[in-house]
Design a protein around this nucleic acid. Structure first.
Lengths: 125, 125
DNA sequence: CTAAAACCTGACGTTAACGTCAGAGGCAAG
DNA sequence: CTTGCCTCTGACGTTAACGTCAGGTTTTAG
């Protein structure tokens, strides 16, 4: 029961998705272009999204912040959509996890060096 | 006694700096262009560096990894060189520290989400 | 002395995730 | 009906930290 597809779900337009997720309209179109977000179209051609598009876009932002490319996210989307993974996808998940962990460690080191300087310059005006 | 300027310090060329710090020669030239690294010149025009150029370049890499731009690093260089700071520099240091800390938190959140999926896909093949 | 390796100065190319602009429809309110 | 806001499709622009290539000089190993 991953996807609750109620019959009368209210579809929303791109502007509402963008505002809801805190990104630009351009960004949402870009995600579609990258195969991350599929939209229905109204008779006149306007994009129509289900409401879970908003948390999805937030999730994309989170992954972008973690350094994943849109290509990589697209490759891993099935892991979230279906919960099913093959060996290659599991390997990619672990690789990204390890890369992010390494990045966290690097940032922590940088943070320590900055704090070091801050402490020195504060106690030694 | 920050800078030990021994009379007969062996100067090294750009290739040795690059290899020692694990970056490309191009990168070292770029740092000079950005005002991060000053080099003497041999009579024939080749760049000559003191050996502490290597840890300096490593430090730049660390700051780049932390998301600082070369401009920002250049603005904060006096904090490391002289240990002296003005109010503006201290504010910048704190701003960067906070930004990096926020980034660490974001990465940790992303890490948790990835681990969540990894756990699920591992226990539910 | 010579050939390879290293260095020099431009200067254009790359990448990712959008920003921005142009020109043209579409949609609810008054 | 028209005003104003939203949306559409292209398509070029942006940014940072380099990569890469061209064409020429310098240093070093043998």
């Amino acid at each position: 029961m991953t996807v609750g597809q109620a019959a009368g779900e209210r579809l929303i337009r791109i502007g509402e998705v963008a505002r809801g997720a805190g990104v630009s309209v351009r960004a949402v179109r870009y995600y579609e272009q990258q195969g991350l977000l599929i939209a229905e179209r109204s008779p006149s051609g306007q994009r129509l999204y289900r409401q879970d598009a908003i948390p999805r876009v937030r999730f994309f932002q989170q992954m972008f912040a973690a350094g994943l490319t849109s290509r990589r996210i697209a490759e891993l989307l099935p892991c979230w959509n279906s919960g099913h993974t093959d060996a290659e996808q599991r390997a990619m998940l672990r690789a990204e996890r390890d890369r992010i962990q390494a990045k966290v460690d690097d940032l922590q080191d940088a943070l320590d060096r900055l704090d070091e300087v801050i402490t020195i310059t504060d106690t030694h005006p």
